[in-house]
Write a protein that binds this DNA or RNA. Structure first.
Lengths: 338, 338
DNA sequence: GTGAAAGCGCTAACAT
DNA sequence: ATGTTAGCGCTTTCAC
């Protein structure tokens, strides 16, 4: 493996000159630069980023911290899309992406911030973490620049990107209201997700604005899981047959809800309308296809990367980025006929 | 950021002793070790892996080279599953994962092997590359240890993990044969995928063993894309209405095929049986759900990581790993009634 | 059992 | 425009 030392020797110059030539500094004679470049090509030189990072004290890498990279997380393409967006951005800017995951069967009691510091990542993107996760506080407390996906924390070195979940939820519920539904249930995620709180808030606001009293017994918890949602919805509809529409805080739960409704022998959308949230891949392939509130996860990943670099380079105007959601009407919602 | 030097000073020992103590060498007094550990905790020390890697000449990182991390690749959860498996393995063994993707809108004419050498990854996993991709040859030629997913190349430093695609294809076709189908069409991927060749081979073998002449005009090309498959199947069935079953080299194409069949006003499975390959997430959610040959991509990722480490540590018995496939019968295939 | 010193490959003052 | 030198934080002979 050739080093700049080898090149220096072969080109008859000092290592400094080689370094400067290769890094495009202006204070080097064009002739010598050409020669150095020629030699380095000939010797098939690749710079050692480890050495460079060591002395420069920055590694041009960003860490992606994901928690719970489980089978489950493959169902929504959420994490993957965020990764794709982030990857796209980092490729454009020359940053490399290193993946950190505590998804280990055994020990690895190393904390996220330790991981980040050891690997000397310049910054981190954090995704899929719960609000009560100890790692969250830890990372935020450390001085590692980072941006969070869907968790609103701001500081000198911390930013976040999310969508307006209250508004998104209102769009969903308003859609149902416009279709004439009045008895609208909600399947929420779990309390440790920031987005759940907001999506509930939007639900309540929308009902209130329509002068419909919200009934707490109609808001159930699906833990963001398909099976859990199916189970809960089944019970709910059995005891409350007057419900005509269900708003779910995630598409996966909406799919669970669809199963429950079918299991009860009811027809979607004629007897029960269902609307989801996320617009995951599955949604458009379901029968009936699922009406939902779309989020652009790819963009979230991309914007998260962008903000992180801005923070790193101290030119972030804002540490907060709100992306748009949009209503996608498909087959699972229809006018209320009751 | 504290270094071993700081610890040495604080503990009143030399850096050598600190290094040895922290790395668990035996030739260090237990008392001093305890003290050193205490001090390093107190100073919130994190080792600098960059420096360590530089001197040790190994980075404990493996690179994941993916090509075409597109919107499309989100449809099958294939890449994600491989990533998950690989991540699981590397987490268990303390290796970190860095993601390389040429998925860049602009320049980045840097080659994979350059990327690998610059970042000093110890080895690489290559996934989703076509057989005619110039990168492929390049990586194989370089001396970087690597393991390929679904491309059978072996050398001193190169291994691969795949499934028995001929056998898998035969399982699929035999299933249709057992259901009494005789007029079985095939939708293949593209010629630059090694697996396509094998899956075609299996198709032909199965037919031959059943004494059914294979008809080349019944083998069409779907380029592994849903829309392409839909289009091709639509044309095929129009001109060959005697076909009763279609075997597709991927689930995504099978889904395209399903759309085409429905568009022709035919019923699945009563008039046309369809079988796919892969068992992607969508398959079980389709209506009707899709019969398919399942591959375990998670396991492929895991095994690829495992083999890579074995190659790195010079204790690989074999540079080839064949995983099992299995037939999953769902609703899209049924006895032939014609 | 512990320390001094060299060196991994690179960049960056500071000369010249 | 180029070279000398120091040093990034760590591991590793080789002495003692």
């Amino acid at each position: 493996m050739t080093t700049i030392k080898d090149i220096a020797k072969a080109a008859g110059v000092s290592v400094t000159t080689v370094s400067r030539a290769l890094n495009g500094y202006s204070d080097v004679n064009e002739k010598t630069r050409e020669k150095i470049i020629a030699v380095s090509k000939q010797l098939n030189y690749s710079p050692n980023t480890l050495a460079r990072s060591l002395v420069m004290k920055k590694s041009k890498t960003i860490g992606l911290l994901v928690s719970g990279m489980t089978k489950q997380s493959g169902k929504d393409n959420l994490l993957f899309e965020v990764l794709r967006g982030l990857n796209q951005f980092s490729a454009e800017t020359g940053y490399d992406l290193v993946l950190f995951s505590t998804n280990s069967t055994k020990q690895r009691e190393k904390t996220y911030s330790q991981l980040c510091r050891e690997r000397r990542v310049d910054g981190a993107i954090i995704q899929g973490i719960k609000t009560d996760d100890p790692y969250l506080q830890e990372v935020v407390d450390s001085d590692i620049p980072c941006v969070l996906v869907d968790i609103p924390i701001e500081s000198e070195t911390v930013g976040y990107v999310t969508t307006d979940n209250v508004l998104g939820a209102k769009k969903a519920v308003n859609h149902l209201l416009e279709l004439g539904h009045r008895n609208i249930a909600m399947v929420n995620g779990h309390e440790f997700a920031f987005v759940s709180q907001k999506r509930l808030e939007g639900y309540e606001q929308a009902l209130q604005e329509a002068n419909i009293p919200s009934r707490t017994e109609w808001v159930i918890n699906g833990a963001f899981e398909e099976e859990q949602a199916e189970h809960q919805v089944y019970q709910l509809l059995k005891t409350h047959p007057d419900i005509t529409a269900i708003y779910c805080a995630s598409d996966l739960m909406a799919i669970g809800a669809m199963k429950a409704v079918k299991r009860l022998g009811l027809c979607i959308p004629n007897q029960i309308s269902i609307i989801g949230y996320d617009d995951i891949l599955l949604s458009s392939y379901m029968t009936p296809s699922l009406t939902t509130i779309a989020q652009n996860f790819y963009e979230m990943g991309f914007e998260a990367g962008k903000m992180l670099i801005e923070i790193l380079e101290d030119k972030a105007k804002s540490h907060r980025k709100l992306l748009e959601t949009r209503l996608i009407v498909r087959e699972s919602t229809i006018k209320n006929h009751t």
